[in-house]
Design a protein around this nucleic acid. Structure first.
Length: 270
DNA sequence: ATGTCCACCTGCTGGC
DNA sequence: TGCCAGCAGGTGGACA
């Protein structure tokens, strides 16, 4: 899934098809993903015109001319397919537009979600309520991080994955940013000084910006909304590269932290 | 409050 | 060839 850059590129891809376009049919093909689909999703979205497509953290938001917003999350394996050849088992939500295009939310593992909220009440949408700042926003700074991490004993890796601290980072880009900033993922978050936090914030912004520019990293079951595969040769420094050389010349190792793989280089990350 | 673990679900890969 | 354990981008609830 889609971490922030993949959701950003997905939303941009969807905008090319849905901006100012009216939906003629919205059908859920099962009752739920991670959560139940809203019972009135089809009724409220059918006939609506999409007037905005935006992203918050790893969520995509489709605003309609009826004052509703459909908010989707791609979980671990979700993606949108545009004009798929056929609708199959894992196409859980199917949308048809006034210009005759068809989109499907395809998600084999079904960790994704689709919710419907009134656009004016979006700040109260539970997943957004306690969420931290956007990592690419102006309010995400070294000073902010310093304040939020003060006194925290958890490893920096875990803190950066906590969406309440900063919203949108996932396992891949946290590993990449920590390597770029030469910080050990095991370090207690509260013990990292300003001299290290500044490059860390810079590395996070740089890693995300580069990934968005490249169109999102290609993963096994991720594709751009138009279905085109392999459009970006991944250029990871450490993620998934256990035993391979780190850019510093050291060797990348894999460690498990809170049940998830961390890829890092003990030679340069202190 | 903080920190850790686990469940949710399907598909793929590598080792035997 | 076949089976099975292990692993995968996330989130949130249940614990101590």
């Amino acid at each position: 899934m889609p971490e922030l850059p993949e959701v950003e590129t997905t939303v941009r891809g969807l905008a090319a098809v849905l901006q100012d376009v009216r939906l003629t049919s919205v059908i859920a093909r099962r009752a739920d993903l991670r959560r139940a689909f809203p019972l009135d999703l089809g009724q409220r979205m059918t006939g609506a015109r999409i007037i905005s497509l935006t992203r918050r953290a790893k969520y995509g938001v489709l605003g309609t001319d009826r004052g509703d917003s459909m908010i989707f999350h791609l979980g671990m394996s979700g993606r949108w397919r545009i004009d798929p050849d056929a609708i199959g088992t894992h196409d859980h939500l199917v949308i048809e537009t006034e210009v005759g295009q068809r989109l499907s939310l395809f998600d084999p593992r079904r960790f994704g979600s689709v919710d419907l909220v009134e656009t004016g009440a979006m700040a109260g949408y539970a997943p957004f309520a306690a969420m931290g700042p956007e990592p690419l926003g102006d309010s995400f700074t070294a000073a902010y991080l310093r304040e939020r991490l003060a006194g925290r004993a958890s490893p920096i890796k875990a803190m950066l994955l906590d969406q309440r601290i900063v919203a949108g980072l996932g396992n891949i880009y946290v590993c990449e940013a920590l390597n770029m900033a030469r910080i050990s993922p095991l370090r207690a978050a509260g013990q990292i000084g300003p001299a290290k936090l500044k490059p860390l914030v810079g590395a996070i912004k740089s890693v995300l910006t580069d990934a968005i520019a490249a169109g999102g990293s290609t993963l096994r079951d991720y594709a751009r909304p138009d279905g085109e595969l392999g459009y970006f040769a991944k250029q990871w420094r450490v993620y998934g590269l256990e035993g391979q050389p780190c850019p510093c010349g050291g060797t990348v190792m894999r460690t498990v932290q809170s049940g998830r793989s961390t890829f890092w280089c003990p030679s340069c990350q202190k």
